[in-house]
């Protein structure tokens, strides 16, 4: 069976003002549809860089990146934008809600992106369905300032789900939330995998990670499977 996501020896070196720094030095990763993967790792280990490459924000320096067996390592930005719109949903640590828009309009942002056009009524139906899915349809008209942190993150999750993507990428989505609210958001994301979506969750939180089907640790630029019994939470959180 062709994996949904396949990274094969992916490398990435960041070239800033300082010395070039190799962040990923041969990452191999395979994710099937409906599978959830947690990526743990120390700060600066390259988790976000990995997610940037998987989410087509950035391109790998070496190796291959395939979706449905198609190599997309070098696709042009125009096609990458279309793929991001069609196949990916993103949830970030900060919610990135636009304060001048209502919750519904923030969710609709993913539909009004120049990748096809939906009539207003259909757009509204999709937005309300996504908000319903995360349990905050009643807050559709509220602006972010009137929502709690958890509610804002659920709006962000609804924005990620509204196009019904096959891949969800979450970069420390609970980092700005308390434990209880964080658990709620993770449950919502995990629930999405039951509908056949793949989920890659970057987190520092072992409790959240172990809810995923597979737990990986990014260390020295490569991914390693993590056994539940081989790590201590304090180590991960460092």
């Amino acid at each position: 069976m062709t994996p949904l996501i396949e990274l094969d020896g992916v490398t990435k070196t960041l070239k800033g003002q300082q010395e070039p720094r190799t962040i990923l030095s041969g990452v191999d990763l395979t994710v099937q549809a409906g599978q959830s993967v947690a990526v743990l790792g120390r700060s600066g280990s390259g988790k976000s860089t990995l997610l940037s490459i998987v989410g087509l924000f950035d391109r790998p320096d070496g190796g291959a990146y395939r979706i449905d067996g198609q190599d997309i390592s070098r696709i042009p930005e125009r096609k990458a934008a279309a793929l991001r719109s069609a196949e990916f949903g993103f949830v970030f640590q900060r919610f990135f809600l636009l304060k001048h828009l209502s919750a519904a309009q923030n969710v609709a942002m993913a539909l009004v992106n120049g990748q096809g056009w939906l009539p207003r009524r259909q757009r509204r139906a999709k937005v309300m369905a996504a908000l319903e899915q995360v349990g905050i349809a009643h807050l559709a008209k509220h602006r972010p300032a009137k929502l709690s942190g958890g509610e804002q993150q659920r709006v962000a999750v609804a924005r990620a789900l509204v196009r019904q993507p096959r891949i969800l990428l979450a970069d420390e989505p609970t980092g700005a939330l308390d434990t209880e609210t964080g658990n709620l958001v993770i449950d919502v994301l995990h629930e999405a995998t039951r509908q056949g979506r793949a989920l890659i969750l970057v987190t520092h939180d072992w409790d959240h990670a172990r809810k995923m089907g597979r737990v990986l640790r990014l260390e020295d630029g490569t991914l390693h499977d993590v056994d539940e019994y081989e790590h201590a939470p304090a180590e991960v959180a460092a």
Partner: peptide, 12 residues
């Protein structure tokens, strides 16, 4: 940046 992340092309 967020709009680009959700698939908005540069031209838009």
């Amino acid at each position: 940046a967020l709009r680009r992340a959700v698939g908005t092309p540069r031209t838009l």
